[in-house]
């Protein structure tokens, strides 16, 4: 490849053929690993479509009532009512099927993203060199404009749900890694030391001390992963992933303002529902787990671990 001298003369900086290089890499990958990517594409789109079918099977209103009940359970009755109104709105603008398709895509992408992100975050928390290697990659994944991921995805997976899910995973992954690492690193070093001092193995310390204490932070990461996945899932409509994104895309191509807003507001309703529910689950995870296990204990006739009651009025 010859260096175009005109550019060098104008700016004093030679033209570096980054674009050509990356294209060559993707072409090579596509030619040699095409079969593998087809497999991945089939698997994720199969999972997404199955889940979408399941979500679309019952009468929409029944599902809305179930979702609203869940919102009530994790937060309070007010949020249950708000959820009901928001989700019923999606039915009323005739976007329910699209919304469930998008939800399916978000859930599949989130689960896969977390399966990758949490172990990676744990490894990064454990070793500074892993952390240093992972950080720039995460920065690149997150700050690259979302659209840019779509093009190579299409070359690798062709049009459809597959590239939509994979692009969504890439875009949504980083906060899962970051907040897992942060959560684990934030755990009081003295408590971890106590684990070692009483002879716990690294696995016991991870399960009994680090993960439970990092859980609120990790759940904040899960919340962010879900929200990023939702925003990317809409953009993925451009590559034929369907759902609300598909409706938005066709509203743009048809200059259909009404459809655009109906789909857009449905995204907003879904976003609010997902955000508040996961935030409520994350924020109260530890206390709720205690409350539930305490209640179970009482039902089974034991109070907590030790049988003795707390002496009344002696707390300081």
């Amino acid at each position: 490849m010859s260096v175009p001298t005109s550019q060098f003369e104008e700016t004093g900086v030679p033209r570096v053929p980054v674009g050509d290089g990356i294209e060559a890499v993707f072409d090579w990958v596509n030619e040699n690993l095409g079969a593998f990517f087809d497999l991945v594409s089939d698997a994720v789109s199969g999972a997404t479509e199955t889940l979408a079918d399941v979500l679309n099977a019952p009468t929409p209103l029944i599902l809305v009532v179930l979702f609203a009940a869940l919102a009530w359970l994790v937060k309070n009755w007010k949020f249950g009512v708000v959820s009901f109104i928001g989700l019923a709105f999606i039915i009323s603008v005739d976007q329910w099927e699209n919304a469930m398709t998008t939800l399916a895509l978000v859930l599949v992408a989130t689960v896969i993203a977390l399966v990758i992100a949490v172990p990676l975050g744990l490894a990064a928390a454990r070793s500074d060199s892993v952390s240093n290697a992972v950080r720039p990659v995460m920065d690149l994944m997150q700050t690259m404009p979302a659209f840019v991921w779509l093009v190579p995805m299409v070359t690798l997976f062709s049009i459809g749900v597959g590239p939509g899910v994979v692009a969504t995973i890439i875009f949504a992954l980083p906060p899962g890694v970051r907040l897992t690492e942060l959560g684990i690193r934030q755990v009081d070093a003295e408590v971890v030391e106590a684990g070692h001092a009483f002879g716990s193995s690294p696995g016991q310390i991870l399960r009994g001390i680090q993960l439970p204490l990092a859980l609120p932070t990790i759940m904040a990461g899960v919340n962010q992963v879900i929200m990023l996945a939702l925003s990317m899932a809409v953009i993925a409509g451009l590559v034929g992933a369907g759902g609300l994104g598909g409706a938005v895309t066709s509203s743009i191509s048809q200059l259909d303002i009404g459809l655009g807003f109906e789909a857009g507001l449905s995204v907003v309703a879904l976003a609010i529902y997902l955000d508040r529910t996961t935030a409520a689950v994350g924020g109260g995870a530890a206390t709720r787990a205690r409350r539930i296990s305490g209640a179970l204990g009482r039902i089974l006739g034991r109070s907590g671990t030790t049988a003795a009651p707390v002496p009344a009025g002696s707390r300081t």
Binding site: D188, I209, L213
Partner: peptide
């Protein structure tokens, strides 16, 4: 260095 999510017992 106690575990805050575990009871005293």
């Amino acid at each position: 260095a106690l575990l805050p999510h575990r009871t005293v017992g």
